[in-house]
């Protein structure tokens, strides 16, 4: 599970949960992979993401490095910035661990990089 994926997941469907985002990450295995850098793609994705949640997630995995806490308004021309964003979004992967609902503490397991977001009938 890359951090771009983590940015897309919520526990909002759980009964009684209002926002359910961002899910806390408890990782037991994290891996870094090299992914081809496509500045145009990263630029296009940034406005669709929750930047604070991305920074928090990166920080909790110790891979925030010097990624700025806010998005530079002129980011499409800032290659250094886009490379850092690319790294955090696409190159850091949680292989084993859990995602935790910020409101209820419900845990969603991540195995072999696949988050299991299924809920039981009585949870929705």
């Amino acid at each position: 599970m890359k951090l771009i994926t983590h940015n897309m997941l919520t526990s909002k469907s759980l009964k009684g949960v209002n926002v359910g985002f961002p899910l806390k990450i408890c990782a037991t295995e994290v891996k870094e992979v090299a992914v081809d850098f496509n500045p145009e793609f990263v630029t296009r994705m940034i406005p669709k993401l929750d930047w604070d949640a991305l920074c928090q997630a990166a920080e909790s995995l110790g891979c925030l490095n010097d990624l700025p806490r806010s998005v530079n308004p002129n980011h499409e021309n800032d290659e250094e910035f886009l490379k850092k964003a690319h790294h955090v979004l696409l190159e850091v992967e949680v292989i084993e661990g859990e995602l935790v609902c910020p409101e209820t503490g419900r845990k969603f397991p991540v195995n072999e990089g696949i988050p299991n977001m299924l809920l039981n009938e009585d949870e929705v």
């Binding site: 890359k2 994926t5 997941l9 992979v33 090299a34 992914v35 696409l90 696949i114 977001m117 299924l118």
Partner: peptide
């Protein structure tokens, strides 16, 4: 593949 993500979800 380095750009294929999988999610278990309904």
């Amino acid at each position: 593949l380095k750009n294929l993500e999988l999610i278990q979800m309904d």
